[in-house]
């Protein structure tokens, strides 16, 4: 199958993606620097916010606008979980609320577990030099 590279590098899409995700990260950075929140808490805040905004249907607008700029940040992970749960409910009813979310995020979770194990097998942590 031929790939149309002009579609792949369509600059308006990339620019919207770059700016949106950059701004999301800046919000995270302000939280890091201005509060005493640990990285784990910040990740939780982003995922939960994403899931709530996703459930309310608001995050969909950001995804339509910025593409990966909205889905790659952890808010997108939350959005994906919530979207999956809603689709699960539409398809299977109550049980879908339990299966849909994780099903939608399964690729990412499984990849993180597998690659994490692989990295631990072959590599050793080193002391930070700075």
């Amino acid at each position: 199958m031929d790939i149309d590279w002009s579609n792949v590098f369509e600059w308006t899409t990339l620019l919207k993606c770059f700016v949106t995700s950059g701004l999301i990260c800046v919000i995270g950075q302000i939280l890091i620097d201005k509060t005493k929140l640990t990285p784990a808490k910040i990740l939780v805040i982003f995922v939960t916010t994403g899931a709530i905004l996703g459930g309310l249907g608001i995050y969909q607008y950001l995804v339509d606008f910025a593409g990966s700029g909205a889905t790659v940040p952890l808010t997108g992970f939350g959005y994906n979980l919530a979207k999956g749960a809603i689709e699960g409910v539409q398809q299977y009813g109550l049980v879908g609320a339990f299966t849909g979310g994780v099903k939608a995020a399964a690729g990412g979770i499984a990849a993180a577990v597998f690659f994490g194990y692989l990295a631990a097998l072959i590599s050793k942590p080193k002391m930070k030099k700075q």
């Binding site: 890091i32 990285p39 942590p125 080193k126 002391m127 930070k128």
Partner: peptide, 18 residues
């Protein structure tokens, strides 16, 4: 020991935090 103390009290060394 820096590494054992970080491991016990803070975060894993390879975690990319500031």
């Amino acid at each position: 020991h820096f590494c054992s103390a970080e491991k016990q009290f803070r975060f894993p060394l390879e975690l990319g935090n500031q």
